[in-house]
Design a protein around this nucleic acid. Sequence first.
DNA 1: CTCATATGCCACCTCCAGGTTGCATGTGAG
DNA 2: CTCACATGCAACCTGGAGGTGGCATATGAG
Lengths: 115, 115
Amino acid sequence: MPASARARLARRLPQAATMFAALGDPTRLALVTRLCDGSRRSITQLCAGQPLTRQAISKHLRVLEDARVIRSERTGRESLYTLDPQPIGELRAYIDLVSSQWDDALARLKSFVEK
Amino acid sequence: MPASARARLARRLPQAATMFAALGDPTRLALVTRLCDGSRRSITQLCAGQPLTRQAISKHLRVLEDARVIRSERTGRESLYTLDPQPIGELRAYIDLVSSQWDDALARLKSFVEK
DNA sequence: CTCATATGCCACCTCCAGGTTGCATGTGAG
DNA sequence: CTCACATGCAACCTGGAGGTGGCATATGAG
């Protein structure tokens, strides 16, 4: 019923989709999961334990950075990556919007049935 | 620090990745956004307004169903799709885990700095 | 019964995400 | 200065995602 909520969802959809897609790859989600403790790690550090080439990891990091999920900062000869909390918050906001819409619909349905 | 939370994240990672990937496509996210009002819609209904073939939409719906984001039920000659609230909830739980980890890290960092 | 409707299934096409290798570049260590 | 190390960049390959069209099948309408 709330057309405003629907409009908000539609407006945020493209960016939300890219962020979801960024987290959709297992390797990338693993990277994010590894960074979610707030640490700043270099590429080679993030390569450790993964069966992939440095370049592959590097590409994934680039994707995550383009989606604004992580941030990179060059210090000396290595670039350190950290999680960016704000986009994660926006993702949560999107999901909350979807589920709240759904909750509202359920409530309306319930009240309709009970009437 | 909480190794249990990290283990939980690692365990849920594969399924979470598939769900993120399912929502990563703009068309699919639009479908989910359209279904999040609790309605049950047929394929042709969902095709209306989208510049895609019925088969394309059908495939997307199949992907969403495989990821357990939506459910289908055949009634008569049409199959109706509805949003499945539980996986959405799990996604939210995953994001909450990530951001709570992050919050914890921030808190620890803050207390460390302030010490 | 007959027909239009709603969908499923299959073959096919195209393009890019994900991955590798090789080389170039910048920077800290000694 | 020289060398090892961390990274960037470009070319290349390949499988599967996303899309189409055609045909088959079930089912409600008349």
